[in-house]
């Protein structure tokens, strides 16, 4: 033990009592920025390119080809409600993040569950919408519009579904006591992903549905 204490050196002794983790030293890097958080931001930045490709493909193809078009199938009041639900899930997510920052675990679980449920309602709405469109004759390969539309909104739906899995994982971790206040950043990172999914829908709702 004595050797170990000696190996720490005088510089380490001077830092005794300093909350190194608070200042981003030790667990992170020289910038003081969390690697995990930076990783999520890098992922979100690159995901902009994925959705950018899908949106621009949709814009290019929506009026090309023949057959059923956006005006024939879209149900704007229904999609507006879905959009509102997803928007409100972002509000519940910020409360989940602020709950764990305060160490309020019951509220954290409540808001995580609310967020996941709102996400589930959105996905249920999307499944209903896709089913309705299919029954009206708009399959994935019906025309260029349908392929572009299903690809764009389908990819977004997959993102939302992955987000729900993350939220439920956090919920279970919290229930089993594996999500302490020290791991609040994990909830924040999942929150970033969830808000990104919401913000992408803000674009899709306007560009695809409201400006058909």
């Amino acid at each position: 033990m004595t050797d170990v204490a000696t190996d720490r050196g005088p510089a380490a002794d001077e830092l005794d009592g300093v909350d190194l983790e608070h200042w981003g030293i030790g667990t992170n890097n020289s910038t003081g920025i969390s690697n995990n958080k930076m990783g999520m931001w890098l992922f979100l930045g690159s995901d902009c390119l994925l959705f950018g490709a899908l949106i621009s493909t949709y814009l290019l193809l929506r009026h090309r080809g023949t057959g059923i078009g956006p005006h024939d199938v879209f149900d704007i009041p229904f999609t507006s409600v879905s959009s509102f639900v997803l928007l409100m899930s972002s509000v519940s997510m910020v409360f989940a993040v602020s709950s764990i920052a305060r160490g309020n675990h019951p509220k954290l679980r409540l808001w995580l569950l609310v967020t996941a449920m709102l996400g589930g309602v959105f996905i249920a709405g999307q499944v209903y919408e896709f089913t309705t469109f299919y029954r009206e004759g708009l399959g994935y390969t019906t025309n260029l519009f349908s392929s572009a539309f299903y690809s764009l909104t389908g990819f977004h739906g997959v993102h939302v579904s992955a987000g729900i899995v993350m939220l439920m994982s956090l919920f279970v971790m919290s229930l089993t006591g594996r999500l302490s206040e020290e791991r609040a950043e994990t909830v924040e990172i999942v929150g970033l992903y969830w808000h990104f999914v919401d913000v992408v829908w803000v674009l899709i709702f306007t560009i695809v549905y409201l400006i058909p």
Partner: peptide
């Protein structure tokens, strides 16, 4: 909601770079 206004500016640069590149 994503705290870009309050967080470290590097995050803003990372995200906006991806966004600008995509657009």
């Amino acid at each position: 909601f994503m705290h870009l206004k309050f967080d470290n500016k590097i995050f803003r640069w990372v995200f906006v770079s991806g966004l600008v590149l995509a657009v």
